[in-house]
Design a protein around this nucleic acid. Structure first.
Lengths: 250, 250
DNA sequence: CTAGTGCACTGGTCGGACCAGTAGGCTACG
DNA sequence: CGTAGCCTACTGGTCCGACCAGTGCACTAG
């Protein structure tokens, strides 16, 4: 023992080093969204690697949502502003391959949504409160119109709440998980009668939550929102898994 | 108007179609983790594209964490079991480029952690409770030993809680966000005196949470955990942003 | 002054080539 | 007969050169 500690040699691929450098430039702010990378032929000179290597690096960067390239564009690849698209992608595959149950997803939404509402009840502006109210009004108007309009108004409501929570991470995660849940649920949509009853119930719940927020009672609003989410989705969740959701209700 | 609705032709890159097919095979279960893809030269025959195209597709799949390839391996690329690595990656870049503040991250942890504790208080087994107790004991023993051991014991505690919550999504997100927070905080570590006081305080808090869970009082345990997290991290959070964290305390 | 045409780029794809690894069969030696 | 060592047939990683189909811009012809 003693003597120098040898580390296992980690062979670093050439394209990985290209990725690292470009990634670092983007995250450090040296390259900001909207700016262009040099062309592939220019990059292969700067990095002194072949175009194949440059292209593989660009594919990785593109898969990570950092850049986008268009054929024929006289400029190089474009640096993109961050979008939760890759977060969404990886969470979606997580949901599929890792066997996330609908119950777990809904439970996660209950947690995030009620927390956002708790925060929003204390931090929201009056303008945001008005936005929420008009979203609920849109929901009411959409009962007859069709399910698309109702869903959109519902999403709009929760979007305002998420924004009002002041936490971008909560906002993004709610957005991602919500769309996954909606996709799962849309595959087994309830029949028309149930749907209309569900919609009316949901509107009532939203109004209650809104009232509680208006009154500044965050904990109440949060509790109501959990109950609302449960009532809305319980029918889609296998009976055996509902117990986990009930554990979140008071 | 009227007439056929023409959609804009979406030029699909060759490598994208390769990605789609392989991805579909993996997510449908036709290819399960541990299995091998055909070699690149074999794939270029099956898809009748060039090797460059196959390789770009493999780079994308690798960036998504679905496969891994090793040079010299007589088999092709290996199909990987899902790991939260790409989720972690995208959330990390989110934290960096999208300017997530430490306050937002800690707030997110407060939400997830307290929810996990709330669930765990009702769903945990006795064995898991014992694991938590031994983790706290390890924390106590580690105060003198060093900061690494303390941190590991702390992580172990929250890991058991996350598992006991029964929600894999919560578990994974907690893991990801926790490591990001720890990385941010480790850069501005408190000086030794404060640290020891923090550790002792943290242990006391963990014991209180543990007691509440033992008593089956989930809401109390959850409230205590939020308070504990706040006390532990408030010192690292700029004063102006602490208000958002306080909004989660009762 | 404008409409139209090229040209000089871009990224996407292809094919071939070489290298450095690895695994497993084969051989030659003990 | 058993084994240590070599040899070969693969693998992925990298490079090169070529061609195509787009795009934007300058230039030209009306």
């Amino acid at each position: 023992m003693g003597g120098p500690r040898f580390e296992p040699v980690r062979t670093v691929r050439a394209y990985e080093r290209v990725v690292e450098q470009v990634e670092e430039a983007i995250e450090s702010g040296a390259l900001s969204p909207g700016q262009r990378l040099p062309s592939e032929r220019e990059l292969m000179v700067q990095f002194s690697v072949s175009r194949s290597t440059v292209r593989e690096a660009l594919r990785v960067l593109q898969a990570r949502g950092l850049v986008r390239s268009r054929p024929g564009d006289p400029n190089g690849a474009e640096v993109l502003p961050f979008s939760p698209a890759t977060l969404h992608k990886s969470m979606s595959t997580l949901a599929r391959v890792s066997e996330l149950s609908l119950a777990e997803l809904v439970q996660f939404r209950m947690v995030l949504d009620s927390s956002a509402i708790l925060l929003a009840a204390r931090l929201r502006t009056d303008a945001q409160l008005a936005e929420m109210a008009s979203a609920v009004a849109a929901m009411r108007a959409a009962v007859e119109a069709g399910q698309d309009a109702f869903g959109e108004a519902d999403v709009a409501f929760h979007d305002v709440v998420a924004r009002a929570s002041g936490n971008k991470l909560i906002q993004i995660c709610m957005d991602v998980v919500r769309s996954i849940v909606l996709k799962l649920v849309s595959e087994k949509i309830a029949d028309a009668d149930d749907r209309e009853a569900l919609m009316r119930q949901s509107i009532r719940h939203h109004e209650e939550v809104l009232d509680a927020m208006r009154a500044g009672d965050g904990p109440l609003a949060a509790r109501l929102s959990r109950k609302a989410m449960y009532d809305y989705y319980a029918g889609y969740v296998p009976a055996g898994e509902r117990a986990a959701l009930l554990a979140l209700l008071d």
